[in-house]
């Protein structure tokens, strides 16, 4: 073995699988640098939430107990003095995010599974019929003030009648991939385009600023993501298992519930978490649809801007209680999420 000089040892990798000391050092320096970029802002928010106003205003203090004496006054203010004003949006956020996510995952999984395993042939006429009836429903509610429950029920009944009778005479049809592409492409739609009519719609039926409106909207905007992610998980389940169950006498629903869902559990967990995060952090739709009763946390945090100016100690508390549960959950389940994202992106 020939002697290697100091510089050679520094810059040449010792073997195929190891790195040269110099590049190793540089790699760690950059990665640790970015770690600081990621963690420092969070750290700053956390320590700011324990500062007194004068400690913030007198300039940067970095280390609790050394630079300054931490105090729980901001926490007390947010939780005790404001009390319900904090807890109500927090509860709203939990209810709305969880419910809309559960619904989106259920409905989206059903659709994703069906699009993976069942062949479709949707007649364009059926779709056109639905849109016409929807338009007529809205017009009738608007114009004649018919009660919306009743009108919706009649329209749905008419639609099924149409779909099963005249609908079949229209020739052009959409196949699975068309439907899938259409569902996923809904995500391209900027929410601001859709939210104005949704706002008017909920205003019409008197559901503005309610949990129902928020849940329905969130569920709808997150549905494409669920379908997109779950499709790949379902496609990855060996079809033999389902065929075997089918021969043994299981119905589709039974196969889905007892074979497919348990096997797609990692995917479900990842999708659930991603959608939950999106719903939890959502801002724009909440801005339009909720004003007071159904106000969620992002709105409460954003509203601090106007009401309190730069009272950062309070804001920091709100930010901390908003991101803590999600961050903790994510760290616990990050393996699943990473895999979930990967599956979607690789096959997308």
């Amino acid at each position: 073995m020939r002697e290697r000089s100091f510089f050679q040892r520094l810059f040449e990798p010792p073997s195929l699988t190891e790195m040269a000391p110099a590049s190793k050092l540089l790699t760690y320096a950059i990665l640790i640098g970015w770690t600081i970029v990621v963690l420092f802002p969070l750290y700053w928010v956390l320590i700011t939430s324990f500062k007194l106003p004068f400690q913030v205003n007198d300039g940067p203090d970095f280390i609790p107990f050394i630079d300054y004496q931490p105090s729980g006054h901001a926490w007390r203010y947010i939780f005790v003095e404001l009390g319900n004003d904090t807890l109500r949006p927090y509860l709203n956020s939990i209810i709305i995010a969880l419910t809309s996510t559960v619904l989106a995952v259920i409905i989206g999984s059903l659709a994703a599974y069906a699009l993976v395993r069942i062949q479709y042939n949707v007649k364009i006429g059926t779709i056109a019929g639905f849109i016409v009836l929807l338009g007529a429903t809205v017009y009738s509610i608007n114009r004649f003030g018919t009660p919306w429950h009743l009108t919706a029920a009649i329209a749905l009944a008419l639609f099924f009648f149409f779909a099963t009778s005249f609908g079949r005479y229209f020739k052009r049809a959409l196949k699975n991939n068309d439907i899938l592409f259409w569902i996923i492409s809904n995500r391209i739609l900027p929410p601001v385009v859709a939210v104005l009519p949704i706002y008017l719609m909920f205003q019409r039926v008197g559901l503005l600023d309610t949990h129902v409106a928020m849940i329905a909207t969130y569920m709808a905007v997150n549905l494409p993501i669920v379908v997109w992610l779950m499709r790949d998980f379902f496609a990855g389940i060996p079809i033999d298992l389902e065929e075997s169950a089918e021969i043994d006498g299981a119905s589709r629903i039974r196969i889905f519930a007892t074979i497919v869902l348990p096997l797609a559990r990692p995917g479900l967990a990842a999708t659930f978490l991603l959608v939950l995060i999106l719903a939890w952090n959502e801002y724009l739709l909440a801005l339009f649809i909720s004003t007071a009763d159904a106000q969620t946390m992002p709105l409460l945090v954003a509203a601090q801007n106007a009401t309190r100016g730069p009272q950062w100690w309070y804001m920091s508390v709100l930010i901390v209680i908003m991101i803590a549960p999600i961050v903790l959950m994510t760290i616990l389940l990050q393996k699943h999420i990473a895999r979930g994202l990967m599956v979607g992106a690789v096959k997308g």
């Binding site: 409905i107 989206g108 059903l110 929807l134 809205v138 329905a216 909207t217 709808a220």
Partner: peptide, 17 residues
Amino acid sequence: FVLPAVIILLTFAIFPL
């Protein structure tokens, strides 16, 4: 299986569009 998703998207995406 697929109808709920389609109806929701028609109501909350296509119709508003």
